[in-house]
Amino acid sequence: MTTTTTPVLEVRGGGVTFRDADRNEFRAIDGVDLQLRRGEILGLVGESGCGKSTTARVLMGLQRLTSGQVLLDGAPVTPGRRRSLAPRVQAIFQNPAGSFNPRRSLLDSVAEPLRVWKQGNAAERRERALEELARVGISPQMAQRRPSEVSGGQCQRAAIARATVLRPEVLICDEPVSALDVSIQAQILELLAELREEQGLAMLFISHDLSVVATLCDRTAVMYAGTVVEQGDTPAVTDRPRHPYTAILHDSVPTLVPSAPTATGLRMRPATGTVDGRAEPGCRFAGLCPLVQDDCRAARPELQPGAHTAACLHPLGA
């Protein structure tokens, strides 16, 4: 994993601002920098509403950046143009059944990308789709069924087949296992790991579950209030978190032993009312950070480039 090669997919200074009818602005994400290298699985974690999914939608080409840019293989992607990322970037979604047209069979839907990109004739496309489905463990009989007639795990397998049938370079996975049973989760995660081995597929794996990310991902980026606050190799981020938020997020993974010692023992300061980190002039986490100091409220820390960095003025273990 050399840092000198160009990342296959990259977002630089990515910002998305939504405006409502009254012209109130909301910065869903702001100054997001992410690099996805070839054949690497990058985990993106954070709490609900921190901008994970907005980032994912940007990288899928479903959401336009209002600032910054997306680069595919080092070349800037024209914003707002359809098909600027397809078919090299494909995606799987959180709700497996919901991501299939209810009126069409799984086989039809998996063959659809081939039809759209005009590959082969109908019989060849069918053959390819069946092959791809077989690889993810869906039998030809099962492939004839509609999404409502198969289980969530089978649907997600078919969704993976649909996403990989065009041999993309990048797979964006937006919480692909959070709607599934734990036993099915493991199978899907295994399948994704296999795909990376076989095809050298790069993945952006979004989850709110740190333990899932820890088992699958090479690198991890932690998002808070619309920006990346820490990124680095997964073992480093999970074992030696540098940003207080990461430490707290890590400690909050539930264990069977309530009295089990936490890694850092940090706790969020009790908040008075809702804390909107995006509105803070300084560090976004200052309002909740147990280690907050005076300068945190004045200056906004930036994420520096490096192997393992945190956007914090007073990182842990420094």
């Binding site: 899928m60 359809r82 397809a86 970037v89 995606a91 919901g98 047209n101 969704a159 649909r162």
Partner: peptide
């Protein structure tokens, strides 16, 4: 989500409408 999935695949608009 299935309309978004079609978008990500790069399905032309008319095809999304029809299918």
């Amino acid at each position: 989500e299935y309309l978004e999935a079609s978008e990500v695949i790069g399905t032309p608009v008319l095809s999304i409408m029809r299918r």
